[in-house]
């Protein structure tokens, strides 16, 4: 009898142990290479290991070689936020106000650029507009790709908040007090969807800085963003430089990720999944 009792008590503990093991193993799998690349980026000679000494020389070299890519990435990301705000927030408003078949279709269409591989979007852009020399050579060509890719995230993020607040009642209330459309927009609607706009903006910046698949097709030697530079480094430079450059990328992207987790607060997992990843087939 006692052995049976022992076995039954052991069962749950074993299951708990297995689950814990899988979780920790997944965590090590994801985090270990991040830590290793950080370490490699400040090690004098990674082949020898840490005993070769720590150094900032690789970071300095990255700054020397790839400074331009950092500037360009920031420039593209910030412009991208501005553009998606200006065209995305009104679009979200329309989608929230009107649930007709036409607006449903528009909503479906807007998501297509993230449902289809970025390579295809990049290819389509370059085969269509590659002939326009000036445009092709400018950073605006990259911006276009980023706007296509990030717009659905902005629209969805704002739309998600708009559907949770009772937009119609709010607007009717304001209208009954004599507010014009412009006054309603800036006095009532925008302040109430601020959280969605903020979340959307953070997401757009994060995604734009990390975008590679479209950008790789669209870039020129003079218009390189960080991920493009990273690909270049990984292919042609020594491991330490690639690692140091990766550190730079982490320094830019990780605070954004943390900020995103913080503003979405307690409902974090659900929020990120619902607003960010709805249908986004992107590595």
């Amino acid at each position: 009898m006692s052995t049976l009792a022992q076995r039954l008590r052991f069962g749950p503990r074993l299951r708990f142990g297995l689950q814990l093991f899988v979780t920790l193993a997944a965590c090590v799998f994801l985090v270990a290479p991040v830590l290793m690349s950080i370490l490699a980026g400040v090690t004098r000679n990674y082949f020898i290991g840490i005993r070769s000494g720590l150094t900032l020389q690789w970071l300095a070299q990255v700054w020397e070689l790839y400074r331009q890519t950092i500037y360009l990435s920031l420039q593209v990301a910030l412009t991208c936020v501005a553009v998606t705000l200006v065209i995305g927030v009104p679009a979200a408003y329309v989608l929230a106000k009107s649930r007709s078949r036409l607006t449903r279709l528009v909503e479906e269409l807007l998501v297509l650029p993230i449902a289809v591989p970025g390579l295809a979007t990049g290819l389509a852009l370059i085969l269509t507009y590659g002939g326009l020399r000036e445009f092709r050579a400018s950073w605006l060509f990259i911006l276009v790709g980023h706007v296509l890719f990030t717009l659905p995230f902005m629209v969805r993020s704002v739309l998600a908040v708009m559907t949770t607040i009772d937009l119609n009642t709010l607007e009717e209330g304001a209208a009954s007090l004599g507010a014009s459309f412009r006054q309603r927009l800036f006095g009532v609607i925008v302040p109430n969807v601020r959280s969605g706009i903020l979340a959307g903006a953070l997401m757009v910046v994060t995604l734009s800085i990390g975008e590679f698949n479209i950008t790789w097709m669209l870039h020129t030697p003079l218009t390189q963003t960080i991920p493009v530079g990273l690909a270049d480094t990984y292919a042609s430079m020594r491991l330490e430089i690639g690692s140091a450059y990766t550190i730079v990328f982490f320094v830019m992207i990780i605070p954004l990720l943390i900020a995103m987790q913080m503003i979405s607060g307690r409902r974090r997992p659900a929020r990120i999944v619902e607003t960010a990843d709805a249908g986004a087939a992107r590595e």
Binding site: T23, A26, C27, F29, L30, V31, A32, P33, V34, M36, S37, A40, T206, L207, G210, E211, F212, N213, P227, L230, A231, Y234, G242, S243, T246, F249, I253, I254, L256, L257, I258, Q261, P269, I272, A276, E283
Partner: peptide, 24 residues
């Protein structure tokens, strides 16, 4: 913290992930 670490790579582009595999 564990959840945060498990979701850290959400915004890594493919190139960086390729590099992570090289590190491993």
């Amino acid at each position: 913290l564990l959840t945060a670490m498990l979701t850290l790579p959400l915004a890594f582009p493919g190139v960086v992930i390729g590099f992570m595999v090289i590190m491993l």
